Amino acid sequence: MLPIRDHNPSGRTPYVVYALMAANIGIFLMYWPILDDPYRIASFFNDWALIPSEVSSGRDQMGLFTSMFLHGGFMHLAGNMLFLWIYGDNMEDEIGHVGFALFYVLAGLAAGMAQVLSEPYSHIPTVGASGAIAGVMGGYLLLFPKARVDILLILVIFFKVFTIPAWIVLGLWFAFQVFNGLLLDAASSGVAHWAHAGGFVAGVVLTLPLWLRRGGTGFWARTAGHPPHPETRYGRSSIPVVRRIRK
């Protein structure tokens, strides 16, 4: 199940989202030529990634920030940029450009610390913007729980786009992170699940003051959990449904 777009238009140009996407893509392209060189890329990540043991020992704190702009491969980058594009513009619209930039960095730092606390002695480099983006998703869930999100479902040769509320998409995503975080460590799964969960919770907490200023549960009552403006309407999806042929 892959979110591909929401029905929640933003009222202003998301300059910070554009800048973050440009920074992540630009930095990735800078070291992309050495991805296939295990020694050079290991050395690069050792210098710039988040390494929990280095942070917990107090030797290197910078990785908490720099790791937010590094990715382990093209699909890693593409997935994160898709999620940032879907949810980030609305959060920037609500918080403002400067506020959203600060929100993003704080959520990313919180995500990194969650990963450090989960595995304080790990020497495995952790990279990716997903912790910060998880914060964006947590804030989005608090403000727009019933915003409609289009999901691409892929089951072998079956492809279907359908629409479900944000609280289901994001709630399941968060539950998946916690569930896998309890069962797997980052070394065996290759995914920093606790960074994702920590970033998500941080995003909810950081958005609470805005939500309360809007009226808290009263804001939900006025909007019924939907975006407080007309939603985007899309035409019929051009993605075909391919069904198994019975012989």
Rank of each mutant, 00 (worst) to 15 (best):
M1S: 15
M1L: 10
R5T: 06
H7Y: 09
P9H: 00
S10V: 08
S10M: 07
S10C: 11
G11V: 01
R12P: 08
R12Q: 15
P14L: 02
Y15P: 00
V16A: 12
Y18R: 07
Y18W: 09
Y18F: 14
A19T: 06
I27Y: 07
F28K: 04
M30P: 01
P33N: 06
I34F: 03
R40W: 05
R40A: 15
A42D: 12
F44M: 09
F45K: 05
N46K: 13
W48L: 15
I51N: 01
E54D: 14
S56W: 02
S56H: 06
S56E: 08
G58Q: 11
H71R: 09
G72D: 02
L77F: 09
A78H: 06
G79K: 04
M81C: 05
L84Q: 07
W85P: 00
Y87G: 05
D89W: 11
D93F: 01
V98N: 06
A101Q: 01
L102R: 10
F103T: 07
Y104K: 01
V105P: 00
L106W: 13
L106K: 11
L106Y: 08
A107V: 04
L109P: 04
A110S: 13
A114N: 03
Q115G: 14
V116D: 01
S118W: 13
S118R: 15
I124K: 13
P125D: 09
P125T: 07
P125I: 03
T126Y: 11
T126D: 15
S130V: 02
A134V: 03
M137W: 00
G138N: 08
L143A: 06
F144A: 02
A147I: 02
V149T: 09
V149K: 02
I151L: 11
I151Q: 10
I157T: 10
F158W: 13
F162W: 03
T163Y: 03
I164C: 08
A166W: 05
L170H: 01
L172A: 13
F174T: 01
F176H: 14
V178K: 00
F179E: 08
G181M: 02
L184C: 07
S189H: 06
G190D: 02
V191M: 04
A195Y: 00
H196E: 14
A197Q: 00
G199C: 07
V201N: 06
A202L: 06
P209H: 11
L212C: 08
R213D: 12
R214M: 12
G215Q: 12
T217P: 00
G218M: 05
F219K: 03
T223I: 06
T223C: 04
P227H: 12
P227V: 05
H229G: 11
E231D: 09
E231K: 12
R233P: 04
Y234N: 01
G235E: 02
I239A: 09
V242C: 12
R243L: 15
R246E: 14
K247C: 09
K247D: 15
